[in-house]
Amino acid sequence: MTVASVVFAVLLAIGFLPLGVVKVLAVADMRRRAEHFGYSVSAFRGIGVLEIAGALGVLAGLVWWPLGVAAGIGLVLLMIGAVITHVKAGDGVGEYAPSIGSGVLALAYVVTVFGAHL
């Protein structure tokens, strides 16, 4: 495990855990966001579960790297879906730039972990 991959894993966990939790708890702002995107609250909770699983997965990847890589790839795919969802909803770049940044961070994590084990 490289220093960069550890830093990326911690940053991803710090970013995705709280977002996943507020989606699972369906706080008012998340219910509004779900409605904005045309999702049910249950579907948004499902996305929150995936965010929590991804965050925990990259942390578990510090112990078993294949799980971390799988979780990182899952987060990249989740962020691709987030960008598509924002675009479909008519949001501007400012609304989906965080999803792009998070996706790039997840991809950097995957590359550093996988690259260290080639």
Rank of each mutant, 00 (worst) to 15 (best):
T2Q: 03
V7P: 10
L11V: 12
G15Y: 05
G15T: 09
F16T: 06
L17E: 11
L19H: 15
G20F: 11
L25T: 13
V27E: 07
V27D: 07
A28W: 08
D29T: 11
D29K: 03
M30S: 09
R31G: 01
R31L: 00
R32F: 13
R33Q: 06
E35R: 00
H36L: 06
F37I: 11
F37H: 06
F37N: 07
G38N: 03
V41M: 03
V41I: 14
S42P: 03
I47M: 05
I47H: 01
G48M: 09
V49N: 00
I52W: 11
A53N: 10
A53P: 12
G54A: 04
A55V: 11
A55R: 06
G57Y: 12
G57M: 10
G57W: 13
L59K: 10
G61Q: 01
L62W: 07
L62K: 06
W64H: 04
W65V: 15
W65N: 05
P66F: 03
P66H: 01
A70G: 08
G72A: 03
G72N: 01
G74L: 05
G74R: 08
L75M: 09
M79V: 06
A82G: 09
A82N: 08
V83F: 04
V83T: 11
T85W: 02
H86Q: 04
V87K: 04
K88P: 00
G92T: 15
G92F: 13
E95N: 07
Y96V: 12
S99V: 08
S99I: 10
G103L: 01
G103N: 07
V104F: 14
V104A: 13
L105Q: 06
L105S: 07
A106R: 14
A108T: 14
A108Q: 12
V113E: 13
A116M: 05
A116E: 12
A116I: 09
H117P: 01
